[in-house]
């Protein structure tokens, strides 16, 4: 068996198995975060907090936990392992803000932390705002 054949063989077998495992991990983690969010929501509503406020508090608590775990240092390993399972939920947004703040802290508070805090999360905010604005204008122009 020559080198190229071997490479083809490796390509054929390894990635699909890895992909299946990655996809399964992402699904399970995403599902867990969904369940955790509902548990937090149920606890908050049992303390007589309205549905809308409890919803916002749930998001804030998730953001706080993700930022705290990033600061303590073990969230990076989790994200590297399950990837989209933690990047797609709001925890990924908090993680990207906190980790870029931590990484650039050494360059000073203004040129380091201040300038780079949205290095990764900025695109989410930019494209979110631009697309929401364009769609709202389309809606207004078409349907009044």
């Amino acid at each position: 068996m020559n080198k190229d054949d071997y490479k083809l063989l490796v390509k054929k077998y390894t990635p699909s198995e890895e992909r299946l495992k990655n996809a399964l991990m992402a699904f399970i983690t995403g599902a867990l975060i969904g369940i955790i969010s509902i548990i937090i929501f149920q606890i908050l509503t049992s303390y007589n907090i309205g549905d809308k406020e409890a919803n916002v508090w749930t998001i804030i608590i998730l953001i706080f936990l993700a930022s705290l775990f990033t600061g303590l240092g073990f969230f990076d390993n989790w994200v590297a392992k399950v990837r989209c399972g933690l990047i797609i939920p709001i925890t990924g947004f908090a993680h990207s803000v906190t980790s870029s703040a931590l990484d650039y802290k050494k360059d000073g508070l203004i040129t380091g932390l201040g300038a780079n805090v949205f290095k990764l999360a900025g695109s989410v905010i930019l494209y979110g705002i631009v697309s929401a604005f364009i769609l709202a204008v389309i809606k207004v122009v078409l349907y009044g």
């Binding site: 996809a23 991990m25 599902a31 990837r83 989209c84 930019l126």
Partner: peptide, 27 residues
């Protein structure tokens, strides 16, 4: 659980099968 899981699954499938990065996918 199903809703969050499926959205994360879609993201992971895009991440694994294309050259897009996590930043592309979240945007």
């Amino acid at each position: 659980a199903i809703f969050c899981g499926i959205i994360c699954l879609l993201g992971e499938l895009i991440l694994d099968n294309t050259k897009l990065t996590a930043g592309h996918i979240t945007s």
